[in-house]
């Protein structure tokens, strides 16, 4: 009878809280691939990504009673996953409080055009190869859409550090694009 009825995200969450194995697995299967891509973007390597991934899902299931149903469950799990990644990185990294970079190298139209022509897989590869120091800030700013102020609060650094890290990420990107265009 209930077979044809699509469960709402809130109902799915409740079934997970009740410990329904089939539902837990269903929710996992629905979101695993997206969450793995998030973890890969933040982690230094696949092993670390898998650690974050498992921790994140365990946390999500353990805290599912906090999910209010006000947004999609996937977005809620994603938030937990990003937080888990940040905490993981924060625990494993000493942030360098670098000075402000005054004249940042900017990407010109050509570079941006090159980025636009790249596939999602190629961009993913770029982000994964980005040095950990500024990868976190780049992910949070460019992809998750946080403001530098929010990133600073989450990472426990100054707003300036966040900006500086993003400048560095951009400079690194520029270098990568130059290498790619030279070898292409």
């Amino acid at each position: 009878m209930t077979l044809n009825v699509q469960m709402t995200d809130l109902e799915l969450a409740h079934a997970c809280i009740e410990g329904r194995k089939d539902t837990q697995k269903k929710v996992y299967a629905q979101h695993a691939r997206l969450m793995m891509s998030i973890c890969l973007r933040y982690a230094r390597n696949r092993q670390e990504a898998e650690d974050i991934f498992q921790d994140g899902f365990i946390k999500a299931f353990e805290r599912m009673n906090q999910y209010s149903g006000s947004g999609p469950l996937g977005g809620w799990i994603r938030m937990i996953m990003v937080n888990t990644a940040i905490n993981h990185i924060r625990a494993n990294q000493k942030w360098k409080h670098t000075e402000d970079i005054e004249a940042a190298e900017k990407l010109d139209g050509e570079d941006v055009g090159a980025l636009e022509n790249m596939s999602a897989g190629e961009l993913m590869d770029l982000v994964q190869r980005m040095p950990t120091g500024y990868k976190t800030v780049f992910n949070l700013f460019a992809i998750e859409g946080f403001a530098h102020k929010e990133i600073a609060e989450q990472l426990g650094v100054t707003e300036n550090t966040s900006k500086t890290q993003f400048f560095k990420a951009r400079r690194w990107l520029k270098k990568q694009l130059e290498t790619i265009s030279r070898t292409a």
């Binding site: 793995m36 891509s37 980025l115 790249m118 596939s119 999602a120 961009l123 993913m124 992809i143 998750e144």
Partner: peptide, 11 residues
């Protein structure tokens, strides 16, 4: 560019 292509990317 990154957000459009990567925020829904699956691995």
């Amino acid at each position: 560019i990154f957000s459009n292509k990567l925020s829904g990317f699956e691995s």
